[in-house]
């Protein structure tokens, strides 16, 4: 019994990380209908930015967010303004193929700059510290921190979208970009801001990933798939749904790993495919589409 509770608990906490992977993807799809295939590689780019910050300044990995978040925001803004805006409004091929090309470019640039060696950020004792809950049950402080961050980040995004002027403009542009322009919304700037925010969120995902596991330049695409699966399981356009999607994916993977370690990824993918077959709009679809 404790075994089952433990599995669900660990899976839920892992889901927090997946929700952080997915929140940015969900946001930019919501605002500009862009599916960014390079999203996973941008998570890895954030991990390397943190790695570099730690190497150069000697600050601890969590504090490196002070540097990584603004750097990634600027990269996101520039990327959207300088490259991705040009792909929008021209059918599905340009955004898809340009972000695919970008994914290959980022992977190989990281390979060139940092080699194929695995890296990891070390956080010290906090990484393995845990709160005992019972005889065979404990919650790790670090997984808990990741999950709490995911909840806070998603609540913050939700507040941004619904309580601020720019958030209102994000939603208006998503509904009808042409009419939004009529009232003074410069969609190019706004899309760039959305990508900046998305990559600021990606920074958290990247730093936590780098502390939690080994990383190398090639692991981005798998992260894209996790993010994508969380978004689809949760239902397009719903940020809390994305958190739920991440949790379901996390639990599925943890249960799979419990049966056989080789089954971890497969179990996650199968959960995704089952949702696709039986609930193609996801578990918590947005009412208005």
């Amino acid at each position: 019994m404790t075994g089952a509770i433990d599995t669900i608990l660990q899976g839920t906490l892992l889901g927090g990380l997946y929700a952080l992977f997915a929140a940015g993807l969900s946001l930019i799809f919501g605002v500009m209908r862009l599916v960014n295939i390079a999203h996973g590689d941008l998570i890895v780019l954030a991990a390397y930015t943190a790695f570099l910050a730690v190497q150069l300044t000697g600050i601890d990995p969590l504090s490196s967010l002070i540097i990584v978040v603004p750097v990634m925001f600027v990269i996101g803004y520039a990327l959207q303004r300088g490259l991705l805006n040009a792909t929008l409004g021209r059918g599905i091929l340009p955004p898809l193929l340009v972000t695919f090309g970008l994914s290959i470019i980022i992977q190989n640039a990281l390979l060139q700059g940092f080699s194929a060696d695995s890296r990891k950020l070390l956080l010290g004792p906090f990484e393995t510290a845990s709160i005992p809950l019972g005889p065979d049950l404990a919650i790790g402080w670090f997984p808990l921190l990741i999950f709490a961050t995911a909840v806070v980040v998603i609540a913050a995004l939700q507040a941004l979208l619904h309580r601020t002027r720019i958030g209102r403009a994000f939603r208006a542009v998503s509904d009808d970009p042409e009419t939004a322009r009529l009232y003074g919304v410069d969609h190019r700037h706004l899309f760039a801001m959305a990508m900046g925010v998305a990559l600021a969120v990606v920074s958290f995902a990247g730093v936590f990933l780098a502390i939690r596991t080994n990383f190398d330049p090639a692991i981005g695409p798998a992260r894209l798939l996790f993010a994508f699966e969380a978004v689809i399981i949760g239902g397009l356009g719903s940020l809390w749904g994305t958190l739920a999607g991440g949790v379901i994916l996390g639990i599925a993977q943890t249960v799979g790993a419990k049966i056989d370690p080789a089954w971890q990824l497969l179990a996650g993918h199968i959960a995704f495919l089952l949702v696709l077959i039986f609930r193609p709009r996801g578990l918590f679809p947005r009412a208005v589409d």
Partner: peptide, 30 residues
């Protein structure tokens, strides 16, 4: 629109996922 020329578009074109008040506030974006 910043110069003071505003259009009520054909077919009204409201932002459908926004509330009435949010739609009005979007008008004041500039």
């Amino acid at each position: 629109v910043a110069r003071g020329i505003a259009l009520v578009p054909e077919g009204r074109r409201l932002f459908l996922s926004l509330t009435v008040e949010e739609n009005l506030l979007m008008g004041a974006y500039a």
